[in-house]
Design a protein around this nucleic acid. Structure first.
Lengths: 214, 214
DNA sequence: AACGCTACCGTACTAAGTACGACGCCACCA
DNA sequence: TGGTGGCGTCGTACTTAGTACGGTAGCGTT
């Protein structure tokens, strides 16, 4: 238990958000998780905003850093897979990205390692910016879609798609119906499997950019 | 003014969110925008959740639909550019994606048109799923990053980056510092310009996937 | 002995979402 | 003509948030 600390407050906040969602993260629920009264929390953080900033920063800290100088493709792949896993563990973090302004040390270190990996791989400064934007857009966007899905895991899609499909005749939205019928609702389908396929396509694109025009 | 309606309620909700952010969208602020008292709103929607679902659906309706059968690349490009513009107008919509479950007709039409475009372009069912996931991940992710940026437009980055850069010595985060110094903070830099570059790389990737393995 | 610091808490104010029960107006029928 | 029922609107009040303000108890310093 120890005398509480900013760190413990943030760790508890992450735990509450993971278990019960961002909406359930209130000063009161956080205080309860910590075994103290609400106002006590305010001795370690100034506002709730600061808590939100803090937990996003701590989530960034969980992402595995790429090592500049090693095989760039392997390092960036590792980072992307790790980031996606982290956002899957903490889906609420994506919704918080918008509200943040000041990056903390974990974010800065993260950016520096990724940029360094691209630079040492031979990407020009301008190409590094292009590559980074493309790669992160893909990772964030995939994580966002995954978080937005109302189901998770193999075969879960079918039970969600079924009732939706029944709200309209088969000839309306026929392409959508076909995809659902012949792929999404088939046993074994898991949206999560799309990640690595798209990631490799993006990494291929980066490889081609590496020596392209500025 | 007319006797109010669900449509007008949703339009007003979008306006409030656009102008003052998602947090400022409350039943009270919405009622004020409509010129009525709070409880009146509840004659057109059951809960605030329904309002949130409704405005996301209306945002989806703003995205230009691709036309299946025409040049696939051009159609998908048009749709992506339009989607990105829509999310830029309504950045709050991205944060709402996670909370939605039941897609409305606008979303269904949208998905159907996009899937149809891919299918008629010769993508197999499985490849269509791959391609769609990749393309939308990129678009959503880019939009999310753009929404998270604390600045907007050319040259705005410098004034934001400057104070951050000064919080650490130049030799810490040296790669990040280099990129900032030699690119981001240079006059004329605009993150928005990255979009089309990455989009074309993604479309190239799709073109290669078109006749690839399943 | 007085002071002040650290960790914590009680009370209360304000802003939200929304349940519940009215109230005024109008079309329609007797 | 007078009722009557429904529709759009609203007043009041309850509940759950964030958090300002002002404590209090325990302990070390001078």
């Amino acid at each position: 238990m120890s005398p509480l600390s900013r760190e413990r407050v943030l760790r508890a906040a992450v735990a509450v958000a993971d278990e019960r969602g961002l909406n359930a993260l209130t000063i009161r629920s956080l205080a309860q998780e910590l075994g103290v009264k609400p106002m006590t929390v305010y001795h370690y953080v100034a506002t709730k905003e600061e808590i939100l900033d803090g937990i996003v920063e701590s989530v960034f800290g969980e992402i595995e850093l790429p090592v500049p100088g090693r095989d760039w493709r392997e390092e960036l792949r590792k980072r992307a897979v790790s980031a996606r896993a982290v956002f899957r563990r903490h889906p609420w973090a994506l919704a918080l990205l918008e509200s943040r302004t000041q990056p903390g040390p974990a974010s800065l270190r993260h950016h520096d390692a990724t940029i360094g990996t691209l630079r040492l791989a031979g990407f020009s400064v301008v190409m590094t910016a292009h590559a980074y934007a493309l790669l992160d857009s893909y990772v964030y966007g995939f994580a966002l879609q995954e978080a937005a899905l109302p189901f998770e895991g193999p075969d879960a899609a079918a039970s969600v798609a079924e009732p939706i499909m029944e709200t309209f005749p088969d000839d309306e939205y026929s392409h959508l119906a076909e995809l659902a019928r012949e792929h999404i609702m088939r046993p074994g389908y898991d949206f999560a499997d799309e990640f690595e396929f798209g990631l490799d396509a993006v990494l291929d694109a980066l490889a081609r950019m590496r020596h392209g025009s500025p």
